[in-house]
Write a protein that binds this DNA or RNA. Sequence first.
DNA 1: GAGTGGTCTAGACCACTCG
DNA 2: GAGTGGTCTAGACCACTCG
Lengths: 262, 262
Amino acid sequence: MVESSPNIFAEDPVVLPPGGPLYLQLKRWIEDAVHSGAIKPGEALPSERDLAIKVDVSRVTVRKAVQHLVRDGVLIQRHGSGTFVALPHQRVEQSLSQLTSFTEDMARRGMAVRSIWLDRGVYAPSPEETIVLGLSSTEGVARISRLRLTGDTPLAVERASLSSRILPDPEQVSSSLYTHLEKAGNRPVRAIQRIRAANLGEDDAKLLDVAVGSAGLNIERISYLASGRVIEFTRSIYRGDTYDFVAELRLGDQPILTGSQK
Amino acid sequence: MVESSPNIFAEDPVVLPPGGPLYLQLKRWIEDAVHSGAIKPGEALPSERDLAIKVDVSRVTVRKAVQHLVRDGVLIQRHGSGTFVALPHQRVEQSLSQLTSFTEDMARRGMAVRSIWLDRGVYAPSPEETIVLGLSSTEGVARISRLRLTGDTPLAVERASLSSRILPDPEQVSSSLYTHLEKAGNRPVRAIQRIRAANLGEDDAKLLDVAVGSAGLNIERISYLASGRVIEFTRSIYRGDTYDFVAELRLGDQPILTGSQK
DNA sequence: GAGTGGTCTAGACCACTCG
DNA sequence: GAGTGGTCTAGACCACTCG
């Protein structure tokens, strides 16, 4: 069903762009073939063994070149199936200055999103959760974790923790957590979000369907009620290749104020 | 000068944590040794060849385990010198809601920062620069690129483009670009910043002194004057392991407003 | 069952660092 | 010059996919 593209690989002899180690020459050659359109998105590359013979290098060298390209998101490998040119991704943007939930955010721009629940339950809190959420010794922690997707493309893994007093029955959260909280008058009005880049580990990479070591955005969010109490603590991991965060910045020495305070 | 830590590697036989491929078992074993403090930051690991003999695997398998840990920032390899446990990094935070320059930002928190100029000059604009900066056909583009460091640790590569009318002599920018612009009454008041995660390529990884493929933050910023004109277009690459961006979010359907506009 | 990627080995040579 | 990481080979076997 997926066609292979014999032309570029049929030409012989193959001449690699010179300079540097072999695997980088080969990487550049494949990259050029992809960018020039000689192999199109979705098409299969020759097998590693065939490529090795064609280019006259060892299979180890082919793998090293290919794996760099997999990590860069240029190629995709499927065990037992083959190596393919990656499909271009439509990037998704999220505003950093407005506090909205993922679900609301996507609905607003008309994107079909769905979630797969990974976990919803009440647990004994970790020391970190106790401190951040300000839990008393009798409170448990409600955890809801889910995988966010548009169509079949995973976007993010989201792991939220709340006091079990605020969310005694996590199973009742059906789609938007914020909508659910709003019903009980517990919608957060303010949040601090911390963003960093990190290479994805085995588990998250598998969930997000990308190569181990791909770049991801690691986001930690602490949300506050109008009263100042912390209501939610969420760690999310976004795929680096499908997500942009957009912030609008303004010049000023005072923090930005909304509402009537000050 | 750097001591090696014979204890953990002197014990024999070595028992790897079971499960999964050999190189992942070895990776976990080394990782545990680092996290438990059996090998301390800055200390050297045995050479790949010695480790291979000790653990009774091939050197290729050792390298695969080690390279995963290098990419994760746990180990550092120096060609011809050895493999070392990475020193812990102090992370730097930057607010996303205020428009400040890097220099001002660091000075405010008392951190010694310095820049190394990579380039300052006037060039023919790229098509992208022409569009984004709204250049007329007679305008050139002033480019200033620099490497930002705290002490000896590189933090970011910053590449700014401005109209040559606004910055005819880029060599005159001594430290803060914004301070320089302010002198001519051209300080931006607003900016749109787009953040994504990406694996660092060869060139940027070398400049930032991390392994190729490490996660980095890719930031694109477009700054505006009060008049609405675009004044600056900057692409920056931040090291994933030393930089956090922090944003404060607020609930609201209207964009946040400052000043008297409504 | 044929073909694919994933792991692993033993061995070689090169490029770099350090005393 | 001795030791280190960096690249590369030829070959093997395993795990997975697909018709």
